[in-house]
Design a protein around this nucleic acid. Structure first.
Lengths: 214, 214
DNA sequence: GGTCTAATCCCCTGATTAGGGTATTGTGAA
DNA sequence: TTCACAATACCCTAATCAGGGGATTAGACC
């Protein structure tokens, strides 16, 4: 889409006037980028994206009106091939993960803008995913199943039964699966309900899957 | 756990003799790391981890016997505070994502070992998550994708009911939740079963959660 | 206007599950 | 040797669910 000697068309959304000016200057002075527009809010992002067809958008999260995360969703909806680099002071897990789920290709904390903006842009345009170490850690943690959040004290056999249950098996099938009688299955199930503090299959399955017990 | 002037205790698993020797040398010669052991397979990883209590494990994926991904799961099970850095030639999405889900803290392609091993180790020990740009991209893509894998043609109302069911609600509670009669719930449930090709609640909930329908 | 579908509601019957017991065996800890 | 507990198995009753009907209303589409 972009060759090395073509400059990348860039849009900037940042509500802080000073910062917007400063980033604008950086972009304008860089020969690899061409600034198409810089806005203090993202309320007209849909029209702007459609008319400018940028290659890259630098997006703040906290802006008056529509948030950068909402704006990112819209951008990816109407021009999916556009890259979005989030520029923000927030590095809490909620914002980071939501931005990435919304379709952002990279996440740069504002304190690193001066030193790393150009390398981040370069990385993004080459198909990479620039992230500060702290952000990368958050992303990885979100994928690692919360293994030892709570220990419900399930025995091995109870875990077997719960696993079979979570696959959608009836008591009858669980009995066959575990090679025990259906009454024993019932006994295990009762203990599982007590330990998980639930009162029916669906609750147990939901809890088992969502808390990584299976 | 580790202060800057304490060397980190390291275990290495790598089946290629030449590469194992070469990485061992790098680790031994670095004053920040202390090599406790280097093995060509991970079949006794459980005992080794328990007796050495390493701070960091450098783990190959493809090894005879137990894979590095299985080994990583065991390590995190018995010594959760141990960091695991995957060293591998594979950068396909399946291996990368499985390794991360298994609990790996970082992922370094072998071609980068010579130039980036020390910085990756440093980053990991500081709580970061070193990844090559290609790997970071894979991780991000995996979070952006899993929305509409399969379309079962559920109507909006059916999705509402399925969502409520997946939270562990009984038909009675779903009825209250959606403000409809229990009979209507039953009708929706019947249609959901048909469309999802399942025959009971647990199967439906399992499918809904695992395939991201809710 | 006719057809289709989503969403709502009702009934019935047989199967399954929930919640309450009790009991035996084997194992491992106190 | 007790004691606790995991794993196995059985019984009973009330509640809930599965699978089969049928029916009405409102909108969409042709």
């Amino acid at each position: 889409m972009n060759t090395k000697n073509m400059s990348n068309k860039v849009l900037l959304y940042e509500d802080n006037d000073l910062l917007r000016e400063s980033i604008s200057s950086m972009v304008v002075l860089d020969e690899g980028m061409e600034l198409l527009g810089a806005y203090g809010h993202a309320n007209e992002v849909e029209e702007q994206v459609k008319s400018f067809k940028p290659d890259l958008i630098l997006m703040d999260i906290e802006m008056p009106g529509r948030s950068g995360i909402e704006a990112t969703k819209l951008v990816k909806k109407f021009l999916p091939e556009t890259f979005v680099l989030i520029l923000t002071v927030f590095d809490d897990s909620e914002n980071v993960l939501n931005a990435i789920k919304a379709g952002a290709s990279g996440y740069l904390l504002k304190k690193y803008i001066a030193t790393r903006l150009f390398s981040a842009v370069e990385e993004i345009m080459e198909g990479g995913a620039p992230m500060s170490p702290a952000v990368a850690k958050l992303v990885i943690q979100s994928m690692q199943k919360p293994q030892h959040t709570v220990d419900y004290g399930l025995t091995e056999r109870e875990k077997d039964v719960l696993l079979s249950l979570s696959k959608g098996n009836s008591f009858k099938l669980i009995a066959a699966d575990c090679k025990i009688s259906i009454d024993t299955v019932r006994t295990h199930i009762k203990h599982i309900y007590e330990k998980l503090q639930v009162h029916c299959q669906t609750e147990a399955v939901s809890k088992a899957i969502n808390e990584g017990l299976v």
